[in-house]
Amino acid sequence: MTTVTDKTVTKPEPAAAGRPARKAHAGWQSTPSVIALRMLVIVAALLLWQVMSGPVVPEYAVSKPTEVYDALTTMLGSAAGWNDIKVTAVEVLAGFGLGVAAGTVMGLFLGSFPLLGRVLEPLVAAVNGIPKIALAPLFLLFFGIGPWSKITIAMTGVAFVVFYNIYLGLRLRERELVEVVQVMGGRRHHVLGYVTIPTLAAPFFAALKTGGPLAILGVIGGEFIASSEGVGHELFTAAQNLDAASEFAGLIVLVALTLSLNGVLTALDSYALKRLGLAARRRPQPKK
């Protein structure tokens, strides 16, 4: 007679066994760790730049981080340097604001009248196909070398981006939702508040974030071609004088200007979507 004895074997749960590794992996992905790694990468790049400038890469072409720092402090410590930054910042903000206004009006107008949109859309696409920097000499003839020529160049680049996002957003608006609001007795302002604005919010703020760098690009391009002041003028002068340190100092100022504008637009985006009740759509769903 054979007797079978049951033996219970306890095995570690896979989830419990992998938990320490997951915690360690999650620790490296925390915000302080990511910031520390970013700073480490920046410091390593600067050290590599300092060491390679001269023995490997010609110093006149890339300068050195220490020389760039001296040029940046000289620029920020002079009234002329701050005047150049102010001129460029004013031109960027004016061109960006006017471009957003013009693009929004064009997008809403052509998007609200389908027949007119179908007639004019190919013409708008043809004008948009022209490189904006190629229009700079024309704007210089109209407005001279003053700030308005740079503002117009920046406005042109931003306006088309905003226009297409608004125009396509209106075309993709769900007709069923509009009809539901109308059947329930809603009027134009109800359709605008409950359907149109929530539909256009995301593409509109995406256009703003895309248009910010385009505004800076347009202004700097215009200052490169013809100007007597501004960061772009200083960059062009530094390039002519083979002054790599001042060139990199100007680029650092432009990066700071871009990051500042993007930060403001990101905060405005989050606030507007939160007020509209759309912020929850962007949050990643928890994994089960």
Rank of each mutant, 00 (worst) to 15 (best):
L261A: 05
M155C: 08
Y164T: 06
V180R: 06
L76G: 13
A239S: 15
D243M: 02
A89Q: 02
R22I: 15
E223Q: 08
Q50F: 10
M39N: 09
P203S: 10
F224I: 06
V253Q: 05
G221P: 01
F248Q: 05
G250V: 03
G146N: 01
I42E: 11
R22Y: 10
A21W: 14
R19T: 14
I130K: 05
A215K: 01
A136S: 10
R282I: 01
I130V: 09
L48R: 01
D243T: 04
T156G: 02
R281S: 12
L140G: 01
T199S: 07
T258Q: 10
G146D: 12
F236A: 15
R175L: 10
A206W: 04
V253T: 09
W49A: 09
G107E: 07
L200M: 13
T210A: 12
A71H: 06
T5D: 09
S227P: 02
Q240Y: 12
W49I: 01
I145N: 06
A71P: 00
H233D: 11
A126T: 10
R22Q: 15
A126G: 06
G18C: 03
E176N: 10
M184D: 12
D70M: 04
H25N: 14
Q285K: 14
N83G: 14
A126C: 06
L115Q: 14
A36E: 08
A244Y: 04
E13I: 08
A24M: 13
V231K: 06
L141K: 01
T266V: 14
I216F: 05
D70G: 08
E91K: 04
P137N: 11
R19W: 12
E59G: 05
A71L: 00
F142T: 10
F204K: 01
G99W: 01
R173Y: 00
S53I: 02
H190K: 09
N165K: 00
Y69L: 15
G107Q: 03
G221A: 15
G193K: 13
V180A: 13
R175S: 12
A21K: 08
M75W: 05
G27M: 08
L120I: 12
V34E: 09
N128L: 00
E91N: 08
A125N: 10
L257D: 02
R175H: 09
F139E: 07
L37Y: 12
A24C: 01
A249G: 03
L170M: 14
E176W: 00
G27R: 13
L170E: 04
S53R: 01
K209M: 14
V41A: 15
G111W: 06
A201K: 00
H233R: 08
L93R: 01
L116Q: 09
A244C: 05
I197E: 07
G218K: 00
K23F: 11
V9S: 11
G95L: 03
G232I: 06
L110K: 02
A239V: 06
A238K: 00
V195A: 02
K86Y: 13
L108H: 04
A80F: 07
P55T: 06
R188N: 14
I225P: 02
L40C: 14
I35V: 15
G146K: 06
H189K: 10
V181C: 08
L208W: 04
I153Q: 04
